[in-house]
């Protein structure tokens, strides 16, 4: 990806003499700080965008902006804000189903079908809170890697954090293992157990490739059923 800096270009229609004098007011290479003849409020640095223009210059700037590169209808269709919530939820579930199909050989058909049902259920428009974010693909990718690695016999219950991270929970009586799948292959887990009716918790965060290993001291078979 290339880093680019947007520099406002201001079109000036004026006699050649005026343009020459304007050239002497250049405040940065290629930037004329004023567009209106007789306008003496030239560029002043401000901490936000570098320069402050007079009101009339700003108006020109706005008009020029409107003329340059209007968004195409096709690109408008891709803006998430243009889509209804139902469409956004459908897209989110469709994309994670496609991701799952790419590792289908590692998952039993029944497991996959159940997973799809769980995804649909999590994104049920009737239950959806508008402030929430549909499942993040990066979180789901971490989940898939974990599942393909652990191959748990017991299916987890699934949930969704506000920001779209997938959560899996395995329960055994009042004991539970809750895992939040983060972007970039990271997992955050917490075990909550009751020993002699006293609650205790163990927390960890690691990369998905070390997930099972990090659970070894806590008898992970209790959750995964192997």
């Amino acid at each position: 990806m290339t880093n680019t800096t947007k520099i406002p270009i201001i079109v000036v229609k004026a006699p050649i003499k005026a343009i020459r004098s304007l050239g002497s007011c250049t405040t940065a290479p290629g930037i004329f700080a004023s567009t209106k003849l007789g306008d003496t409020s030239f560029a002043v640095r401000n901490p936000i965008d570098g320069y402050t223009f007079s009101e009339s210059t700003r108006l020109y700037q706005e008009q020029v902006k409107e003329l340059t590169s209007p968004p195409s209808p096709a690109s408008l269709q891709n803006l998430p804000s243009q889509k209804s919530i139902e469409e956004q939820l459908f897209d989110a579930t469709a994309s994670v189903k496609i991701m799952t199909s790419r590792v289908a050989m590692h998952l039993e058909r029944e497991w996959r079908e159940k997973l799809f049902n769980q995804m649909d259920s999590l994104h049920d428009p009737l239950e959806w809170m508008e402030e929430d974010t549909p499942i993040e693909k990066s979180s789901f990718a971490t989940f898939l890697k974990a599942i393909c690695q652990i191959k748990p016999k017991n299916r987890p219950g699934l949930g969704l954090a506000h920001g779209g991270n997938l959560i899996a929970a395995w329960t055994s009586g009042s004991n539970r293992l809750t895992v939040e799948f983060l972007a970039k292959d990271r997992v955050r887990w917490i075990i909550s157990r009751f020993r002699d009716e006293e609650p205790e918790q163990y927390v960890g965060q690691t990369v998905v490739s070390h997930f099972l290993e990090s659970l070894q001291p806590y008898q992970p078979n209790e959750w995964f059923g192997k």
Binding site: L122, P156, G157, G159, A161, H162, A169, R176, T178
Partner: peptide, 19 residues
């Protein structure tokens, strides 16, 4: 909301997720 209820693999509700 439904998304933050603790459930088993068959969607039976068991409690609340920390989230």
């Amino acid at each position: 909301p439904w998304q933050r209820l603790l459930r088993d693999g068959n969607d039976k509700v068991l409690g609340f997720l920390p989230q």
